[in-house]
Amino acid sequence: MTPGVRTRERRARVGDTLWFAALCVAAAALLWRGVGQLGYDWQWHRVLKYLGAWDAAGFVPGTLLRGTWVSLQLVASAFALTVLLGLVAALLQRSGSPVGRAMARGYVEVVRNTPLLIQVYLVYFALAPVLGIDRFWAAVLALALFEGAFAAEIFRAGIEGVERGQWEAAATLSLSPTDTYRFVVLPQAVTLVLPPLVNLSVALVKHSAIVSVIAVAELTTAGRNAVSETFLAFEIWFTVAAIYLVLITAMSAGARALEQRLRRGRR
């Protein structure tokens, strides 16, 4: 008896998954051998030291894990400032003030049309000495200025996504524009704004790697230092990439879960 369509499909799926696994193994082997043939000596055990070690007092995190912690602190501070900047820029863009609108528009266009790297250099080399801030806060400021332009767009969409009837109802109650935003529009915009904002914080983790150019002691900087100490370029960079991958995938999974929950709540 010939196998049914279902069975054949399932078999093809299993076969392809096996093929994929074989391809991954082949790629890894090729990398291993190819790099090894150039005189590269794989020394994965030396990476462990950079992750952490146990001594009498317990677990002591290595430079890579300490760098991860700094990255998270950086992202948290920058995110708080991003939300503030984004909200202000969005409200200014919606306001009737010609100056406010022009400023917000100018800010968004400048940030969106210049590379983040240049912004980091400008903030660190030019603005930081003027303001008298250290490299950590220069990094926070640069990342927040960059991400804030994207947050502004998210807030704008969120505010415009609130139903017209809500505005009309607020107008009927003769609420002032400030009160309309405060009590009616912004609370309802939160559910619209939250999922993209969480996605923005994931992007922030990705973008935070760039501040390694100004030697803030975060994960990528820790990786660069470890590479120049040991010359274990592949081992260290693969480890750093894996840490970022875990962080970012976990955060995106959280973002998706939140989005689904909010969507269910709205129905």
Partner: peptide, 24 residues
């Protein structure tokens, strides 16, 4: 499935690791 898995793996890897780290 096979080409889909290969494509997904590439796209997800590149998009979930900082560009700078990939560049290195």
């Amino acid at each position: 499935l096979l080409p889909r898995m290969v494509a997904r793996a590439y796209v997800e890897l590149v998009r979930n690791v900082p560009n700078l780290v990939f560049l290195f």
